[in-house]
Design a protein around this nucleic acid. Structure first.
Ligand SMILES: Nc1ncnc2c1ncn2[C@@H]1O[C@H](COP(=O)(O)OP(=O)(O)OP(=O)(O)O)[C@@H](O)[C@H]1O
Length: 732
DNA sequence: GGATGACACATTTTT
DNA sequence: TGTGTCATCC
């Protein structure tokens, strides 16, 4: 097996590729072929005769995983013995084999956010602490602590300045006990418990460290402290560790990622060989220029070169939409135009800072009949009816999962309410609720006893059954009469039943793809997998947050909602926060191969109210709006803005009136468009006169006082920018 | 115990 | 906007 083909890598990449021994760090900008290098390196190792069994590759996207897995399988008969996964699923896999050393059962349940929330709520209730005051704080500290390698006592000391930290630590301590009693691990536990497993059990660490002769990690800038330490532990025997990353693309520091790990790596590993890739293969020169210009505004970074042979290309454009509907229609319209020019739906991505911005896009694309898929946001498995079924299933893997038990014991209704439940908790003592029942540890009054026995009987009956995964799931649904809880005569009930049926279908599909998988495997896959793993698979336009498309690429990228308060998000206050927002913007822009199309709205309806928006500072940093703005006369005057593009919906119907403020700029000169306001001159109820629209009455004024909605006789309600509209006050 | 309606609430990004 | 909690009534 020595027929490795180097031709699809450039010389820089090749140099890093052949350096297989020791610690290697590759830092390079976006689109420079880091992932490609990593993938090829796995293939190269195999071609040198390394067994896939001895390779561990940590990736972030499923696309990379699949690509790699396919290559490996094609090259080696036993290719499926390689470990390619995310940190989290790697840890889950390790713990499924060795968690007993930590006092956990190997069939532990993985608690997602809502489960951990329930546990915390329960504790707060019992301690008579107000939920709204404590919950968020406690949850933050749980995760924060688990993203360090400190003991709880050390954490308490480190947080000495935090108010109430004593009590918080007390709650965390109880939380840990509960999870253990429930035989459950939360997301962060997967990492930190694996770390502790290795730390306290040398023989287990050695087992894995010896096995993995070669370790590769993609997107290294987004590893957190615990992940970093895990890498060190795993590389502690062979030391052949290859990491690639780009500090400019660190976008997960809010959950503990630390791009400084890239720099630490050079210190913590001996004789690190550092490689740089400078040629970008993804984007046109015009796009790269803008991206480079943007990211140069960040201070915590190392200067990097990034060049391309694809000089020129289309100039990125920006569209100033009236509102979010106009924005969505513009996007849909532009896509349709490009589709006619031969682009495919899967060539497009519409990216945004917030999942909440997707709503209007869905409508607009639907009205244009453009196939699309929204990633992120509420997932199928998060629907209430599906979560109930999952809770039932969880009990068949891990009967100590009290959170699951409490979810299902009264669904469908069995007349077992809060009163009965607290009685049961009390009686169960330190056993879990279901286990105490199954063991028949106590008796309650006959009516309740009967109900409980019924439940236990059904449960035990099903537990003894040995049948294929998909059949078992259907059997559970039917034996517990879950579908009967929904009335098919109502549309809602019908939908829910349909969802349950599709869930059964999904299980069947999973079982087909993974013939040897157990129920536990299935449950793990749905808690750890995200739908963004499938981005770009079908023939649809991708609608997603920027976070979800990290590592991916599209011919055409729209980035919408480029407004202060949205992108950068209003919660970003510190300089570091803003730098992370800027990195996020950098990631967004560098997903594009050919075209970047940005949009922002003058006003936007979000979270139940309309607000008037200021263009994002990133517009300017990307080279737009660098001129002194011409005075925009009014929001609603035809041709008031500048429409350079044939693609802009030149007229948008709004409130029975036609607007056109569509502005597309290639990006000349400009400063911010930040109108100065004369506060208090106008107020609702005033009668005013406008030279063009005549007499009207001010109906309302935006919170910031910039724009007023005015009802004109014969013209309807119009939104005008108050400080520039030529209004005369007729009557206070 | 369960159904209903009023009210208060916050609303980033994800493994 | 939409969700989740609380009080009230059956
Ligand atoms: N040597 C090469 N020759 C031609 N194309 C290449 C080469 N290396 C990488 N590419 C292509 O460039 C694009 C970007 O590569 P890749 O995704 O590996 O970059 P990356 O550095 O991982 O990007 P990001 O930092 O955005 O994750 C891909 O389409 C890839 O196929």
């Amino acid at each position: 097996m020595n027929n490795f083909d180097f031709s699809s890598l450039n010389t820089e990449q090749q140099a890093a590729l052949v350096e297989t021994e020791g610690a290697v760090l590759v830092t390079a900008g976006a689109g420079s072929g880091k992932t490609r290098l990593l993938t090829h390196r796995v293939a190269f190792l195999l071609s040198k005769g390394i067994s896939p069994y001895n390779i561990l590759a940590i990736t972030f996207t499923n696309k990379a995983t699949r690509e790699m897995a396919e290559r490996v399988k094609a090259m080696c008969p036993d290719g499926d013995r390689i470990w390619i996964s995310t940190f989290h699923s790697m840890c889950a896999k390790i713990l499924r084999m060795d968690a007993d050393a930590l006092g956990y059962n190997r069939n532990f349940t993985i608690y997602a956010e809502d489960d951990t929330e329930k546990v915390v709520k329960e504790i707060l209730n019992e301690m008579s602490l107000a939920e709204d005051k404590w919950k968020k704080n406690v949850l933050f500290h749980i995760s924060n602590w688990k993203n360090t390698i400190m003991s709880l006592a050390e954490y308490e000391r480190a947080c000495a300045a935090v108010v109430d930290i004593k009590k918080i630590v007390l709650i965390i301590d109880e939380y840990e006990k509960r999870l253990k009693k429930n035989n459950a691990l939360d997301f962060d536990d997967l990492l930190i418990k694996t770390y502790k497993l290795f730390l306290n059990h040398d023989e287990i660490r050695l087992k894995y460290a010896q096995r993995f002769e070669y370790i590769l990690v993609d997107e290294f800038q987004d590893t957190n402290t615990v992940q970093y330490e895990l890498v060190r532990q795993l590389a502690s025997v062979h030391g052949n560790i290859f990491v690639v990353g780009d500090e400019d693309q660190c976008i997960y520091s809010w959950r503990g990622a630390n791009f400084k790990n890239i720099f630490n790596f050079k210190k913590d590993f001996p004789n690190v060989k550092v490689f740089k890739l400078e040629r970008n293969y993804r984007s046109t020169g015009k796009i790269l220029e803008r991206a480079n210009k943007l990211i140069a505004h960040n201070s915590s970074r190392l200067e990097k070169k990034l060049w391309t042979e694809r000089q020129g290309g289309d100039e990125p454009v920006i569209y100033n939409a009236v509102d979010e509907r106009d924005e969505a229609l513009f996007v849909a319209n532009t896509i349709e135009r490009l589709l006619r020019q031969g682009y495919k739906p899967s060539d497009f991505a519409i990216l945004m800072r917030l999942n909440a911005l997707t709503r209007n896009l869905e409508e607009a694309l639907l009205s244009y009949n453009i196939p699309h898929k929204i990633y992120g946001g509420f997932k199928f498995y998060e629907r209430a009816e599906i979560k109930n079924i999952i809770a039932y299933l969880r009990l068949f893997v891990n009967m100590d999962d009290d959170i699951a038990f409490q979810k299902v014991i009264n669904f469908p209704r069995r007349g077992i309410g809060d009163g009965a439940l607290s009685k049961m908790k009390h009686l169960a003592g330190n056993k879990s609720l279901l286990r105490a029942l199954v063991d028949g540890n106590y008796e309650v009054e006959p009516a309740l006893q009967k109900k409980l026995e019924n439940f236990v009987q059904t449960y035990c009956g099903l537990s003894e059954i040995d049948m294929p995964l998909a059949d078992f799931v259907s059997e559970v649904i039917s034996k517990f009469k879950i579908k009967d809880a929904y009335d098919t005569k109502t549309e809602e009930g019908f939908d829910k039943q349909m969802n349950i049926s599709s869930f059964e279908g999904a299980v069947r599909e999973f079982a087909k793809l993974n013939p040897t998988a157990s129920l536990s495997d299935f449950l793990e896959s749905i808690t750890l997998a995200s739908d963004s793993d499938e981005i770009g698979e079908g023939g649809s336009v991708t609608i997603a947050t920027v976070h979800a498309v990290k590592g991916l690429e599209f011919r055409v990228v729209f980035i919408i909602g480029l407004e202060e308060g949205i992108f950068p998000i209003s919660r970003a206050n510190s300089a570091d926060d803003i730098e992370e927002e800027r990195r996020l913007m950098y990631v967004a822009v560098t997903r594009a191969e050919e075209k970047v199309i940005l949009t922002h709205c003058s006003k936007r309806f979000l979270y139940g109210k309309t607000s008037y928006e200021i263009p994002s500072r990133f517009c300017k940093e990307l080279g737009f709006y660098e001129y002194k703005p011409k005075k925009i006369e009014e929001t609603s005057v035809f041709g008031g803005g500048r429409s350079y593009s044939a693609s802009a919906p030149t007229q948008t119907s709004f409130g029975g009136f036609t607007f056109n403020k569509a502005t597309i700029l290639g990006g000349e000169q400009s400063s911010e468009i930040k109108p100065t306001v004369e506060v208090g001159k106008y107020k609702p109820g005033q009668k005013v006169e406008h030279p063009k629209f005549g007499k009207g009455e001010i109906k309302s004024i935006s919170d910031d006082g910039l724009v007023g909605d005015i009802a004109f006789e014969g013209f309807g309600i119009k939104s005008l920018m108050l400080e520039i509209a030529p209004l005369k006050i007729l009557e206070e």
